[in-house]
């Protein structure tokens, strides 16, 4: 079964075996590197396509269930595609006591999704994180690597609109996650 799928040229996502192979070759170390490989795949596609997991399992000589275990154990990995803009709200203790839960709720209301979900138009993914280590400036929100400090609920709408305007900003856009189907740097 595994063999059949990996032999196909490209999946419906437009991801070819070659692209995944290149990522594996780049990050594989003599001892290991599974987490680095998965991270590279996630960075390239915004999520871990099932097809890619099968290739990794085969190449690394590990069972698919083993790789699936790693992929689901760590918070950084997602098996579902993510939106174009990634909004991360820090829920560390310092942010929590300064009102971060209200910030998450405001994002949820404005975007019409729950934390962890992606808007149906694939524009925004709302995530929470345990601590970003910028505790003095809480509550912290990070949108596409841009940090917002001491956020209050009334700023949420502006933050969302801001991320949108960044679309045309070339300086910012190279940091943004590549969308599915884009070429993988070899």
């Amino acid at each position: 079964m595994i063999k059949d799928i990996t032999q196909s040229e490209a999946t419906e996502d437009g991801i070819t075996d070659k692209q995944i192979d290149a990522l594996i070759a780049k990050h594989q170390t003599d001892r290991n590197g599974v987490i680095d490989i998965l991270e590279a795949i996630q960075a390239s596609y915004g999520y871990l396509p099932p097809h890619a997991l099968r290739i990794v399992a085969k190449k690394m000589n590990r069972s698919l269930v083993d790789i699936y275990g790693v992929a689901t154990f760590y918070q950084a990995f997602s098996l579902r595609p993510k939106g174009k803009h990634r909004i991360v709200v820090c829920l560390g203790t310092a942010c929590h006591v300064r009102g971060a839960p209200a910030i998450v709720e405001e994002f949820e209301r404005q975007l019409g999704i729950k934390a962890g979900e992606t808007t149906p138009d694939m524009k925004y993914t709302l995530e929470t994180v345990n601590c970003l280590g910028a505790c003095a400036l809480g509550p912290i929100v990070v949108v596409d690597e841009r940090y917002y400090s001491k956020v209050i609920p009334t700023q949420v709408r502006d933050i969302i609109n801001n991320s949108h305007s960044g679309d045309r900003d070339t300086a910012d856009s190279h940091q943004q996650q590549k969308t599915i189907g884009e070429a993988v740097p070899s």
């Binding site: 829920l91 560390g92 203790t93 310092a94 942010c95 929590h96 345990n130 601590c131 280590g133 910028a134 505790c135």
Partner: peptide, 11 residues
């Protein structure tokens, strides 16, 4: 792996 929320001296 400074996981404790609220601690950032290692960072």
């Amino acid at each position: 792996d400074e996981g404790d929320p609220g601690a950032y001296m290692d960072r």
